[in-house]
Amino acid sequence: MKNMEESELIERYIANDLTEEERMVFEIRLSADDNLRELLRIHQLVDQELGDEKQLKLLNDLNDITSKPYNKGLSRVAKGAVAVVCLLVSAWCIRYMLTPPDTQTPVPESVPQPAEPLLPAKSDSATIAPNSPIAALNSSDFRPNPSLDGLIGTVVRGNGSIEASFVKPVPNTRLLTQSGYARLSTEGFFRINDGTAKQDDIRLLVFSNRDTDFSAGKSLLSMNPVIKKDSNDDFLFSASVSTRLKPGLYYIVLTEAGFNEPITVTSFLITQ
């Protein structure tokens, strides 16, 4: 009971709710009583810090966030190896794009000039010729996705334990559809640099060019990779699927289960 009365007195003092006389008596007590001073300090601290609604919500959220497992750390990727892989992919890409496409699809005699380049030239990829069949299609379906396009050929996580690269398809490979279906095949390799990741954690997800946020986006499809270990302890993956996709630009994202960022990305185009 005494505690309760004391607490009430302290609260009234903080709220400036004491009469002049009560205040004087309280302050005299305060100057002589260490325990009362300590109690006053705690009351002030509690009122100040726990009365901040935004901060209270933040603390609740932080507790919730950190109670969930995080994506296990990946060790630092060998930059040299990544650079070599990027160079190889770029060189392959340029060579491929300079080779006439192997296509049976008749090219329309007259195709309208697009208002803007459909696939702006990147340093490591060629542009689509304005008179190509792609140029005649809806440009928004072929517009590069800035969230994913910049990640092509790179290993995104600097502190990762997985380094990976696509060998196939090279970026912007054109796939033709037959009766509305396209045969999508992918191959590549990855290396696990520490024990935090497992080979079965690899995921291959296909996104359209309209996904603006990979971590919140939903993949159009998930490909089941077949994984083999090679003599260098690297893993080779391959996956193949026949799928119905409308003409447009798509991205294959290699990621790790439960990890909501790409490890590496490649792209392909569906044309009719």
């Binding site: 966030i65 950190t66 995080y70 994506n71 750390g73 502190n159 935090t196 990890f259 909501n260």
Partner: peptide, 11 residues
């Protein structure tokens, strides 16, 4: 904050 947690916790 969840994204940041996922990204930075390994480090």
């Amino acid at each position: 904050l969840t994204r940041l947690y996922q990204y930075i916790m390994p480090s």
